[in-house]
Design a protein around this nucleic acid. Structure first.
Length: 274
DNA sequence: CGGACAACCTGGCGGC
DNA sequence: TGCCGCCAGGTTGTCC
């Protein structure tokens, strides 16, 4: 589910309720959700630590503690929210990890499909070292963007989904960025002209920024920490618009398979390479 | 290097 | 209504 804009929205919503709180206890009912360390050490180590900051790196949520960081990846269906200990809501039936806070509230990790993972580490660099630049930061340079694609034969969409190349882009915003740039998703990455590369780098940032401004996309399970839906899905230009008229030229939007992912594009505005 | 595919999981939807 | 297959915002590992 969540790509960079959704994760960013979650992080922004959690700062207020979490910063300054102390974690007193941990509960879980699905061992695989706890990536590392093992559940016993995890619980013993996190108890008593206060939360100092809540940040994001790519699609990872980083909850900074006094001596460690609690890292959460939502994968496809994860939700992270704070609630009063006695209160309940619709996502609770899929809660698999829960942290008690020192003010009577709880940080709950709900995950219907159970792909999500939590980590506790004092070595963030080791956990996140494989990630490429943050697309909205100054680290996302045009020179690096071009260099990463140079000589690559794989589809540009597969390239954009590679978290080592750029961190945080997923299936939705890859389609959105390629549509806005007028580039066919199956085009070999290394064949982009300098001008196309510059344009695409810009539309990646635009598409992600738009997603953040609309507080993420709620197609199915994604919700902001306050339980409300995001609005980004109402502003998609191509994702999920199969068969509908292209917003630029009116041609029916096509759906194909690229990098084993459903891929939406306009056959006229994003012509195939010959 | 990279493509194809299976795993990991559950639920919603369309078709019959 | 029931059953079946397919699809879904992600990542990792294996095989060729």
């Amino acid at each position: 589910m969540p790509e960079l804009p959704e994760v960013e929205t979650v992080v922004r919503g959690l700062r207020g309720p979490l910063i300054g709180r102390r974690i007193t206890n941990m509960w879980h009912d699905w061992a695989r959700t706890i990536h590392s360390p093992g559940a016993a050490e995890f619980a013993a180590r996190i108890a008593g630590q206060s939360i100092t900051a809540v940040d994001r790196r790519g699609k990872y949520i980083l909850i900074k503690l006094e001596h460690d960081a609690l890292v959460v990846h939502l994968k496809m269906s994860g939700r992270l929210y704070v609630a009063d200990a006695e209160s309940t809501n619709e996502a609770d039936r899929w809660v698999h990890v829960r942290f008690d806070l020192d003010n009577g509230q709880q940080l709950r990790f709900s995950d219907m499909r159970k792909f999500g993972r939590v980590y506790l580490t004092n070595d963030l660099a080791n956990l996140l070292g494989h990630l490429g630049p943050e697309p909205l930061s100054v680290d996302f340079t045009l020179a690096g963007f071009r260099a990463g694609m140079h000589g690559r034969k794989r589809a540009i969409k597969a390239q954009l989904l590679d978290q080592e190349f750029v961190a945080g882009v997923g299936n939705i915003y890859a389609d959105e960025a390629l549509f806005r740039a007028g580039i066919h998703p199956a085009a070999a990455a290394g064949t982009l002209s300098d001008e196309e590369s510059a344009r695409l780098r810009g539309t990646i940032r635009d598409a992600l920024q738009s997603g953040i401004e609309h507080e993420g996309a709620s197609i199915n399970w994604y919700r902001k920490p306050d339980g409300q839906k995001g609005e980004s899905q109402n502003h998609f230009t191509v994702y999920g618009r199969t068969g509908l008229p292209c917003l630029q030229c009116g041609t029916a939007i096509s759906k194909i398979r690229v990098a084993q992912r459903g891929t939406h594009f306009c056959p006229l505005c994003q012509p195939a390479r010959t």
